[in-house]
């Protein structure tokens, strides 16, 4: 039982900031596309790259949650 709780806790706490960051990146990208709709194609790849970097932090905690 304790294993489930620690794994869940690691994932829950470790997921807070990356989730917030991905939301922030997405919001800013949406804002930028709203200001300049023609630039959508140029905004998308850097946005995905930034999201991948932010997501990596959550992935580290995922690995820790599996290995405990």
């Amino acid at each position: 039982m304790s294993i489930t709780i620690t794994g869940g806790l690691i994932m829950a706490i470790g997921g807070i900031i990356p989730a917030f960051t991905i939301g922030l990146i997405g919001a800013k990208a949406m804002e930028a596309i709203g200001r300049n709709p023609e630039a959508a194609g140029r905004i998308l790849p850097p946005m995905l790259l930034g999201m991948a970097f932010a997501e990596a932090i959550a992935i580290y905690s995922l690995i820790l949650a599996f290995t405990k």
Binding site: A52, E55, A56, I59, Y60, L62, I63
Partner: peptide
Amino acid sequence: FRLFGNIF
């Protein structure tokens, strides 16, 4: 870890 974690 980034690559492994994402794909796994």
